[in-house]
Design a protein around this nucleic acid. Structure first.
Lengths: 233, 233
DNA sequence: GATCAACTTTGATAATTGTCAATGCAGACA
DNA sequence: TGTCTGCATTGACAATTATCAAAGTTGATC
């Protein structure tokens, strides 16, 4: 885990983060003890049930939030993208509710929860921003419940792949750092089953994969899998 | 749908609701146009994608929040209990994100979202209370994701039944207004499969059911089903 | 370039879960 | 009291998904 000296005022993420609209003085008050942390793929940033001390902003790379079960299964609760804030469930409880694991080499900012809390008490704009992210996380979680509860494996996978690629619409191909196992743990499926469905999609020309990137030539075609219940469609 | 005249100041729910700690004047400002609404079992209080105008407090009874899919399946996103606030996703979007349907005869309070919003802008305690509920809903949603993604049918059902009964710990038997179909739509299972597992639990003496009430004689025994992956345990 | 480890693919098989159809059961109501 | 309707149960069967095992691939490292 390597670190560099802070320069929040110049940070490229600043206006996309919960700190958008804050004055320079407020930013300086944040008390970020370490900025621009870099971790390698596979690093665990914090563990489920660790005492929560920091929240993080994802500047670059990918993170999975994972819960583990007594029966040996793991469930990825959320996947984080550039700009996402995470670890801030500690604002309301003193433990982390999941483990955070880097999917790729990843750049982070770390902030003390106490400082974040104090600042959000004082600055309505920031409280609003955190509130909004909480609300968005809830909406996404509810959508996941529907996916997991009411759709079959191929439909879940199709929906997920399309949504993933929408986030990278400008580029032809989207970076795709997830393993088959990650996909399985996110979608509630076995690694092998995911692998088979991916192979099917590729054979049907609905999906291309190359060097950690994926491309969906015609998203509508793939999405037909996502909605209908029978394979004939 | 029958209604009575307001008397928020005397309301038994008051101290359990987001309005706990508010002054009498503040309460009067709430602008609740209709209080103490009663609806019968099966009534749809609002529809998914309806324009969101009101939030509701559940005073008595049960509500399910449901999302419907193109493939004909329905998914119960959340089950609400006495004291829960619902419909307030409209604070951040102008449409409801699910349908709200009464499971039993149910008493509600209805409040205008605009008034709720205005009041929460003005009163930190109320904003905090709403914030806290949002956060709790997120935590519950994430727990549901784990249940749906990483557990088998009998484990999901066992966990759910135990949690349900915990809410009624003081009583020997808990009221249980859910049909097998409701259970299926909540747990992501077919009605028949739910029925079979329930019958199994009953045959094993892990569960008793009588006249819309259930009782779990030894929760630990049932919970052993909830955690392990094999039936031998 | 050889080796190693992790990831992926594929096949065979078993377990889980869904679907369809028939029957039973209980409450609502005329 | 009969009838009706919705819900629950059960069985038989089919579809979906998981598990286990064995190769194949790829990328990193020495």
């Amino acid at each position: 885990m390597s670190t560099k000296q802070p320069d929040c005022l110049q940070c490229a993420m600043r206006e996309h983060s919960i700190f958008a609209g804050l004055s320079s003085e407020d930013i300086c008050q944040l008390g970020m003890d370490v900025h621009d942390i870099h971790v390698t793929a596979g690093t665990t940033i914090y563990h489920e049930s660790d005492p929560a001390q920091y929240a993080y902003t994802l500047r670059q790379g990918g993170i999975k939030l994972v819960k583990s079960l007594a029966n040996g299964h793991a469930q990825i609760v959320r996947l984080l993208h550039r700009g996402d804030l995470f670890g801030f469930e500690g604002l309301r409880s003193d433990q982390h509710r999941h483990s955070a694991i880097a999917l790729t080499g990843t750049d982070l900012c770390r902030l003390e929860l106490r400082a974040l809390d104090a600042l959000s008490q004082r600055l309505p704009a920031m409280r609003e921003a955190i509130f909004a992210r909480w609300q968005q996380a809830l909406q996404e979680a509810e959508d996941r419940i529907v996916e997991l509860g009411a759709k079959k494996a191929d439909a879940r996978l199709a929906t997920f792949l399309c949504q993933w690629c929408i986030a990278y619409r400008q580029q032809r191909a989207a970076p795709f750092p997830l393993t088959r196992r990650d996909l399985g743990e996110f979608l509630g499926l076995s690694t092998e089953h995911v692998s088979r469905i991916m192979a099917d999609f590729k054979r049907q020309g609905l999906l291309h994969e190359h060097k950690g990137q994926i491309e969906i030539p015609e998203p509508q075609k793939l999405l037909r899998h996502a909605c209908s219940d029978d394979t004939s469609a």
